[in-house]
């Protein structure tokens, strides 16, 4: 089962949930954690994996042979990202804008465009005890996270439980991270921002046709607007974690909930069981 942990709003506790869940499921079959928040990966701080391998992420960018090129401008016309400009006798490429789609080289009538790899990030893999681990790191100054995220996801096992720690927000990197998941846990907090961004995340998951459930973190200090929203949308709240300075203190030292407060492990195992039931039921009677 592929299980993503996303949130909408940042800082609600995605990594706390993803890492604690992975640790709580230790010894219950194969578990792999993929940290897809390649702009700010942090799951390794908690799982402290031994890294055994790494690979650069290369984006294929155009290289124009200026002698063969007739300056017809087809490449500039088909590039949706304006990563290539043709005017007068000039051809200029802007590799940092290139998404590596290959349209320019494919459609060049003179076959004057070849592709060369440009490094945009790195993926690393290893293990933390019995938990398999992988994460990606986007190079500083790079704008496009999805190619690095795709590379991290290529490292996913074919079986067992795969937990994906997704980036915050609801844009391309999140879509790339959660795509193909059997379930998405949305971690939120009872604040206006938490609710606003939760609504956006729920809409995103609906669009992607991924069933979701809620983890309400830092609960107990605010109104019940998140609960009311979940009731209205018929989304289950699968786990509630109270606002607790001890949890924050542990987390700030790189200690997960599952390790610092082991009594929580049972809660995470139960959480996994509930998710399993939802996914199982859905697979037996598809709603759409």
């Amino acid at each position: 089962m592929i299980l993503s942990v996303a949130s909408g709003k940042g800082g609600t506790g995605k990594t706390l949930i993803a890492t604690s869940l992975a640790l709580s499921l230790k010894g219950r079959g194969k578990v792999q954690l993929l940290d897809c928040d390649v702009e700010e990966p942090n799951a390794h701080i908690f799982l402290k994996p031994v890294i055994s391998g790494s690979e650069e992420v290369l984006i294929p960018v155009p290289h124009v042979d200026e002698n063969t090129c007739t300056r017809c401008g087809k490449c500039a016309e088909v590039c949706a990202y304006h990563a290539i400009a043709v005017f007068g006798e000039y051809v200029l490429t802007f590799p940092e804008l290139c998404h590596g789609c290959g349209a320019c080289s494919y459609l060049c009538p003179e076959k004057a465009i070849s592709e060369e790899g440009r490094e945009s990030g790195i993926v690393e893999w290893g293990h933390s005890d019995t938990i398999e681990f992988a994460h990606g790191r986007l190079n500083i100054g790079e704008a496009m996270a999805p190619p690095v995220i795709r590379k991290v996801k290529e490292l996913a096992h074919d079986n067992g439980t795969i937990i994906i720690d997704a980036p915050p927000g609801t844009s391309c990197p999140v879509v790339e991270s959660v795509r193909g998941s059997d379930f998405c846990l949305l971690v939120t907090e009872p604040t206006p921002f938490g609710l606003n961004d939760l609504e956006l995340a729920v809409e995103t998951m609906k669009e992607l046709d991924i069933p979701c459930g809620i983890v309400l973190n830092r609960a107990g200090f605010s109104d019940d607007k998140v609960e009311a929203y979940c009731r209205k949308e018929n989304i289950p709240i699968l786990l509630t974690i109270p606002l607790d300075t001890e949890i924050a203190r542990l987390y700030s030292r790189g200690v997960t909930l599952a390790e610092g407060l082991p009594e929580w492990r049972e809660g995470f195992v139960e959480l996994y069981g509930k998710i399993w039931e939802i996914v199982d039921e859905r697979s037996r009677c598809p709603q759409r």
Binding site: A80, H82, A83, G88, F94
Partner: peptide
């Protein structure tokens, strides 16, 4: 209204 690379598209339009 370009999704990205607006400056390049704009400059290319008037470059010739």
């Amino acid at each position: 209204t370009a999704g990205g690379g607006a400056g390049i598209a704009a400059a290319q339009q008037i470059a010739g």
